[in-house]
Design a protein around this nucleic acid. Sequence first.
DNA 1: GACACAATTTAACTAATGTTCAACGCGGCT
DNA 2: AGCCGCGTTGAACATTAGTTAAATTGTGTC
Lengths: 333, 333
Amino acid sequence: MGGLANLKSATREPNAKVASGDPQRALRIRAAWIYYVEERTQQEVAEALGINRVAVTRLLSEARKRGEVSIRVHSDLAEIIRVERELEQAFGLKRAIVAPLSDPSKDPTKTIAAAAGRYINQTITHNMTVGVGWGRTLHATLAHLENRPLKNVRVVSLLGGISEAKRFNPAEFAWQFAELFDAEGFLVPAPALVDSNQTKISLLEHCGLDQVFQMAEASDIALLSCGGVTSLTTSYRLGHVSEAERQSLIAAGAVGDVLYNFINEAGAVVDHSVNSRCISVSLERLQRIKERVLISGGAEKIAIMLAAIRTLQPTTIVTDEATAGRLLESAPR
Amino acid sequence: MGGLANLKSATREPNAKVASGDPQRALRIRAAWIYYVEERTQQEVAEALGINRVAVTRLLSEARKRGEVSIRVHSDLAEIIRVERELEQAFGLKRAIVAPLSDPSKDPTKTIAAAAGRYINQTITHNMTVGVGWGRTLHATLAHLENRPLKNVRVVSLLGGISEAKRFNPAEFAWQFAELFDAEGFLVPAPALVDSNQTKISLLEHCGLDQVFQMAEASDIALLSCGGVTSLTTSYRLGHVSEAERQSLIAAGAVGDVLYNFINEAGAVVDHSVNSRCISVSLERLQRIKERVLISGGAEKIAIMLAAIRTLQPTTIVTDEATAGRLLESAPR
DNA sequence: GACACAATTTAACTAATGTTCAACGCGGCT
DNA sequence: AGCCGCGTTGAACATTAGTTAAATTGTGTC
């Protein structure tokens, strides 16, 4: 008998361990099944399995740790929301809004504008001061804004207007924007770019522009876009930055601009005459606005967006799926 | 202005409803994502989304209701456990144990025996009285039982022995079973089937067999199998039921037996001489045993298992995947 | 057979989740 | 314009889940 007992204890226990490796597995899956699939409480699981509740808690957390339970969110929106969350986490945003983009080779302006419009509609409320930039994308959002009269709203242009251009014009955009909300519009009574730093200083110091910009800085929210340095971008098309200047900006390391503040990859303002002649809110001032919304997208904008994100530290970004993916590829780890 | 406002409220709101159908969808998926995928608390989700916690709870439960969140348990065991739970619920069992069966056309005896052996090992403890039946499957479990001495265990045979047969013999099985646990064995000192009801009555009333059966009834657990009415089944192979009797049992509506109690589809004992000549615990008595474990499987056993389940109301069933599937097809809704 | 160690259970407590109900605001209606 | 449903929100409460530490049980060892 003793011999028999020894034999068994020498053979059975190793067997049990080798054979199953994990004697609890069946019990664990059983617990997971009853809890997750049958949606009972842990107390009920414990009763069904004849064990105590604490053991059930342990089994369940073990099952999750081992990946024997998978929770999936599936919806056409799930993938986009995943990307949004990744952007939020990668760049420390309060909110990323990623617009769906059926064809990645297509211009994302329209879909971004629609998403931005929706966001603006639900974000702008009574008693707000809204600082607005300018650009093709921002202009396109106008079509998606509700014509909704709000009380005590001020719209402040964050950069000078361009007298000659009628359609694509900061002043015109800010004006239309203000009208939609029945808001008071504050425009900058000067061109976006002047001839010399001298003129700029004069305008700021002697013509009260600085006060307008101080007001801009007190905005509750800034709606901004950014421009690349390719020849396609609005500023060049409108001829306010010459091709020679564009080349020298590139030479100076600029990857694009935010309100005509041209910055390099690191997000620093490049040393270039254009930067000393622009009539717009400086990046330091922009940073003091509580909510900074960067609305932009497209392959040619990746570099400037990354730079702008670095400097501006926007609280919200509105972009498209393709751009979001590219931004994430370059995201800090 | 008023006209404009009317126009917009007349067009936009229906648009919003038609276009999205469910304005909360994005928020809901977002909440589900943060909660389930990122594994934050509902409080954190509320903060991330700028809504209150109660709203998050509601969004999440809505998402689950809509199936936008799916929780899956995946493991090689998951499918078997699903079947076990279905059996448990369909037949009101405390426990169903389903043994995996690679080839459904194969004889499931071995795999059922292994599963039953594991179950018995972890179920039989000190101070228990175990009533045991008999059959090919039960016999096969012996190979899977741990030779583990227990204190104060009694093994009671639930039916008479068959003196002539050495290997497949209730007495022999009970004896071996008892030995493994170092238990005291109580065998029924009589054949399983006698010549007449007269003899049965004599044995029960005058030879003290009834007392043995009363003791059997007081068992903590009964390990039972069941037999079909095909010629393959043990009882016929061993020649204790003749082919003529088998035919007349079928004619009387019998679909099989539990301890030589032949029953029909409805679970009732059929009116047949064999039933008045068997020396075994009656079905009524079996029902009074607290734990009734039915161990059986195979295509030819479906009918008798269903009938046995109906009458016996086992607390546990041990079977194989294929049999389990067939039982579920015939399960009461 | 007694002791010591390990593992598991019990119990108590804290955190998280789910539910209820009263208050609030918003549109539609008179 | 004011009133009345209607749905939404937020606070309080109830339930469920997760954690920790003491107590118990079982196991192996001497």
